[in-house]
């Protein structure tokens, strides 16, 4: 078998494709193990959901989100070969995605504010979370 060669004027420096599949399988195991850790944490939240504090729940969910970002990094960098492209190109993809930092913070904060305004009638009364019906009556 001869490696592919194409005369593409856009590609000045031809990549070397002679490497094996070792890295692909390594990343497969990395993704699988990260997913299993995520599932273990998710199961921990399910099993202990009522016994652990708000801070523990929130930090576990935060850790799961960080593991998800790690998986995304490996998929984009290795499976989609973005890590093999030149820096100029990597930057045109990754820099616009920084917009998500504002996007996520601003909108989740907005949702939270919306909830607080509803629970307090726009800040005019102390926060009362409405229940559909008082417990213990029927």
């Amino acid at each position: 078998m001869s490696a592919q060669h194409f005369d593409n004027p856009e590609v000045t420096f031809q990549p070397d494709h002679s490497g094996g599949t070792g890295k692909i399988w390594k990343i497969f195991w990395v993704l699988s193990i990260l997913t299993i850790i995520e599932l273990a944490m998710g199961y921990f939240l399910y099993a202990k959901g009522n016994d652990i504090g708000y801070i523990t729940v929130l930090s576990t969910k935060g850790a799961i989100a960080l593991l998800t970002l790690a998986k995304a990094y490996y998929i984009v960098s290795v499976f989609m070969h973005l890590g093999d492209e030149i820096r100029n190109f990597i930057m045109t993809i990754t820099v616009p995605l920084i917009l998500f930092v504002w996007f996520i913070i601003a909108f989740l904060a907005d949702g939270n504010s919306w909830k607080n305004l509803r629970n307090t009638d726009g800040g005019s009364r102390p926060s009362v979370i409405e229940q559909s019906a008082p417990k213990g009556h029927h």
Binding site: E10, T12, F13, P15, D16, D84, I86, N88, F89
Partner: peptide
């Protein structure tokens, strides 16, 4: 997997080639 060897000091924006390779 693939790797691309780029000579040091390549001027990507000097024209005549795609700056993204």
């Amino acid at each position: 997997m693939s790797t691309t060897t780029i000579p040091a000091g390549t001027k990507w924006w000097s024209g005549g080639k795609s700056p993204f390779n």
